[in-house]
Write a protein that binds this DNA or RNA. Sequence first.
DNA 1: CTATCATTTCGATAACCGTTGAAGCGTTGT
DNA 2: ACAACGCTTCAACGGTTATCGAAATGATAG
Lengths: 130, 130
Amino acid sequence: MEKKAVLSALSALSQETRLDIFRLLVQAGPEGRAAGAIAEALGVSPATLSFHLTQLTHAELIVQRREGRSLIYSADFDQMNGLVGFLAENCCGRPANPATCAPVCAPSPEAANGPEKAGNATTPLPRCGC
Amino acid sequence: MEKKAVLSALSALSQETRLDIFRLLVQAGPEGRAAGAIAEALGVSPATLSFHLTQLTHAELIVQRREGRSLIYSADFDQMNGLVGFLAENCCGRPANPATCAPVCAPSPEAANGPEKAGNATTPLPRCGC
DNA sequence: CTATCATTTCGATAACCGTTGAAGCGTTGT
DNA sequence: ACAACGCTTCAACGGTTATCGAAATGATAG
C-alpha cells in the first residue's frame, strides 16, 4: 500500500462521522448498508452523509453498488488490512525485539474476548517477523 | 481504547509529516530518536517539527524522555495496537464470516516476507474471533 | 555564572475542512 | 408520461490546521 493511499485513508477516518460510518460498515460485513439506512442509524442529514460517503469512497475504504433505487455501501477489508500493515512496517527496526513490538504485531487479546497475558511469545509474529 | 482517543490518534496520523515522524519512531523502536535527529532525517524546520511532536504526544501516540540536553521521542506501541483493535472490532458482524474478514484479523502476509495465499484459515483468528 | 546549544512558544498568514439548504439527477411505480 | 423517492451535487460560510521567522525557555558545558 502506498503512502499516499494510507494518508488519504487515515485522513478520511480522522473525522467522527466518517469513523462511525466506517465502523458501521465494518460490522455490517460484505452485505453493507444502504445510504439511507446509514443516515438513519447515525442521525446525519442526507447531504452530509453523501459528502462523507464520497470521501470514504475516494479514500478507497468503502465500495458502492446499486440495488433497486438504493445505493449500498460496504467496507473494503483489503484496504483496511493494508493500512495496518503500513503502520507496523519494519517495526522496532532490525534486529527485531519481540518484547517491545509483540503487541503491535500480534492481534490484541482484548478484541477476542477477555484480557489475557500478552507476553506469551511462543510462536513467531508474522507481521513484523518478531 | 475509547473512540475519542482513536479519533485523535487517526487525526494526528492523517498528516504527512506526522505519519513520517511516527513511522520513523516505529522503526526506531523503544530507543527512539532525538528531536533534532528527526528534524534532520525528515528535513523539516525545528519549529514545525516541535508543533507536530506536540500533536503526536497529545494524541498519546509517542512518548518523551530527556537524555542529556536532548529530548528523545519514541512510539507508544500499546496505543498503536489499541487503534487497530478498535477498527476491527466486531468486524463482519455475527456470525462472523472468515472468508471475508480474515484479511483484517490475520496479519498480512506481505508484511512478513513474500506474498502467499491468504486463504489458509486453518487456525481461528484471534482479533475478531473468526 | 555565562555562553551555548536544543527545543519550544508566539503571532500571523494562507490553505483546507465540515456543515447546510436548495437544486439536480437517475430510478421506480402508476 | 408523471410524480414520488433516494441520493448526490452545488455554492457559501465559519472554524480548524499547517507553516514560517523570530523570540523565549530550559539545560548543559566551560
